[in-house]
């Protein structure tokens, strides 16, 4: 942090000022001119929180993608299909057992096993041939999309959260003041908050695993120099297998989360594949903090876009991507 401020004093000042404005906008009671300018504070706060929680979901999908890419140089364009598979499996499991929480380990396990199969049967055979691997994943995603359409049809499925999570959460944030002088507080769906906190926990756990454990050391060494690592005697194929399973499993969990937030339906696979592509391009390939930053940016851009410029909300995210590519091709957190 201080290092960044020392190297880029102007940018640090800009970021500090923007943060201060944001904090003021969140906590202060908005004056009338601001309401006239950009509308009610409630709308703004909802967009902000929806953006942050959507960012959490994007982070879950994109972190697996970026982890797999960073270690194996494999652009897994079937990642969206893994997400969708996780959503369907989670839905079936939640319906079958009646426990929402059980859907998560089930989706994680099923999709992770599927990922292990992919790595063993497909990717190990064409190691080092980036382009061919990418093409194969395109083929797999076409086949999986059609198989899932076959199995589950074109309907929308919604994984319903349990009753203890369904109510709204009273927050301490003031949105407006009534004539009588009473303060109106913001209410926000509890389930989104819980899921966001879970995403943050997973993110921190991943960071700790990567930076504080022996396995993490192996993975980081593999990201830096795969050949050297295998030359030192590390069983790199096992590491590959584990990382692929973990990344795929995360996509499966994200599928359950997405099914609870929104819905599971054909076409969501492409949507989330594109989202994770944009997130990792913006954040920087192979970087977990980059994925977090990118996911937050893209989630916020999507939600604020849909509130304040509804027609071009989708295009806005791509504009951010183009801007990042034009000025910082390696991504915000990527190493050049």
């Amino acid at each position: 942090m201080t290092d960044f401020a020392r190297r880029h004093p102007v940018w640090a000042a800009v970021i500090a000022i923007l943060t201060a404005i944001l904090i003021w906008m969140i906590f202060a009671l908005w004056p009338a001119w601001l309401v006239d300018l950009i509308g009610k504070k409630k709308v703004f706060l909802n967009a902000l929180f929806n953006g942050i929680t959507l960012g959490g979901l994007y982070f879950l999908v994109a972190s697996g993608f970026t982890l797999i890419f960073g270690l194996m140089r494999n652009v897994n364009l079937a990642h969206g299909s893994l997400y969708l598979l996780g959503g369907y499996v989670g839905y079936e499991f939640a319906e079958l057992t009646g426990y929402w929480l059980l859907a998560f380990p089930a989706a994680f396990l099923v999709v992770a096993v599927f990922g292990i199969l992919l790595q063993l049967v497909v990717f190990r055979r064409m190691e080092g041939q980036d382009l061919r691997q990418t093409l194969v994943t395109i083929g797999i995603s076409i086949i999986m999309a059609d198989l899932m359409l076959w199995g589950w049809g074109g309907d929308f499925y919604n994984i319903s959260a349990p009753s203890w999570l369904s109510g709204p959460l009273e927050t301490i944030l003031v949105t407006a003041q009534k004539r009588s002088g009473d303060l109106v507080y913001l209410k926000y769906p509890l389930v989104r908050v819980v899921i966001f906190l879970a995403a943050v926990t997973i993110g921190i756990a991943m960071w700790l695993l990567l930076n504080r454990t022996k396995i993490g050391m192996l993975i980081r060494a593999g990201v830096d120099d795969r050949d050297m690592l295998s030359a030192t005697g590390a069983r790199i194929q096992l590491v590959f297998l584990g990382v692929f399973a973990f990344g795929a499993g995360l996509a499966g969990i994200a599928g359950v989360v997405g099914g609870t937030f929104q819905s599971v339906a054909p076409g969501e696979d492409i949507r989330f594949l594109l989202a994770s592509l944009v997130v990792v391009i913006v954040g920087g390939m192979g970087s977990i903090p980059g994925a977090a930053l990118g996911a937050l940016l893209i989630g916020l851009a999507e939600q604020f876009g849909s509130v304040y410029m509804p027609t071009y909300a989708v295009v806005l995210t791509f504009l951010i991507m183009v801007g990042v590519l034009a000025f910082r091709p390696q991504g915000l957190m990527g190493r050049s």
Binding site: V75, L77, D130, L131, L274, L277, I281, M285
Partner: peptide, 11 residues
């Protein structure tokens, strides 16, 4: 390389 595929797909 593979980055090109991702960027053109996004475009």
């Amino acid at each position: 390389g593979i980055y090109t595929i991702m960027i053109t797909l996004a475009i």
